[in-house]
Computed example of a mutant assay.
Amino acid sequence: MADAAISPTSTTAKLPRTPPQILGPFYPFMLTPTESGDLTGGGQAKGTILYLSGRILADNGQPVAGAKVEIWQANAAGRYPHPNDENTEAALDDNFNGFAVTKTDGQGRYAFKTVRPSAYPAAPGRWRPAHIHFSVTAKYEQLVTQMYFEGDRYNETDSWLNSASRKDLLITDPAPVIGKEPGAQQVTFDIVLTRG
């Protein structure tokens, strides 16, 4: 699973690179990303709070410091704050930003506080499973990918997830978090680049 600790088994082993995914039609070009790491408006957004963290690593296991990590996603109802999202059956949430950016620390770590997104209709009869988009820009490369959730009913029919060479590296399994908001969850999603 993607939320398991990633480490090479020997000094010559290479970590598997995180598979790329599409940028998607809802990249929030018209929004200013929050730089606080909190997409929830101080906990006011609707839905299950999700503490999302991980590391950006090179395939030799070394942390990638100073990498720019962007995330964007649908809200808890399955709606993006984007003019191209015409899913009016799902409500917008004025307290949810939906777009954030941070930089990794010296150990390659990043962290966000967000909400768990919902699946949404992508076309008649076709749904996208719940996911969070990532764009990682490091010194030598950029990777666009998506993080999915274990047990989502639409995972097995999603063409983008199933196009990945190692879709298991994109699926996470959130766990309850103690000492935070009632019902809050946490998940770790490590991303492996080739060089960093």
Rank of each mutant, 00 (worst) to 15 (best):
Q146D: 13
P129C: 05
T34I: 01
V69F: 01
L92G: 15
E86G: 12
W160L: 07
P117D: 03
Y140R: 13
L193C: 08
T102G: 00
G183C: 06
P129R: 06
T157C: 00
S7M: 12
T11C: 09
A77H: 12
G125A: 09
P16W: 02
A184N: 04
A175C: 00
G24W: 10
A100F: 01
T9K: 14
N162G: 06
L161S: 02
P19Y: 04
H131A: 12
I71M: 08
M30W: 12
P20M: 02
A138H: 02
G196A: 07
D94Y: 08
S165G: 14
A111T: 07
P81F: 06
A74K: 12
D85R: 04
R79C: 10
S165A: 15
V192L: 11
P83T: 09
A123D: 10
M1C: 14
T114P: 03
G108I: 03
P124F: 08
Q62A: 13
L169R: 14
D85Q: 06
G66N: 11
V187I: 09
E89S: 14
G78R: 11
M147P: 04
G37I: 01
S7C: 11
G61Y: 03
M147C: 10
D105T: 00
T34K: 00
A122E: 13
Y148V: 10
T137Q: 12
T32W: 04
F189Y: 15
G61H: 02
P182C: 08
N162W: 04
L15D: 00
T137K: 12
N95T: 12
Q44A: 15
D93K: 09
V64L: 00
A77P: 03
P81L: 09
V177A: 04
S53M: 09
V144I: 15
A91T: 13
A58M: 01
N162C: 04
R17C: 04
Y51V: 05
G196L: 09
G151M: 09
L50G: 08
A164S: 08
F189N: 13
S135W: 06
G183F: 01
I171P: 05
P33D: 06
T40L: 00
L170Y: 07
G196M: 09
P8W: 05
Q142Y: 02
D173K: 15
L143Q: 03
P124M: 05
R116H: 07
T104P: 01
R166N: 15
A4F: 13
F112M: 01
V64A: 01
Q62P: 02
K103M: 06
R17Y: 01
A138Q: 03
A184E: 08
F134W: 04
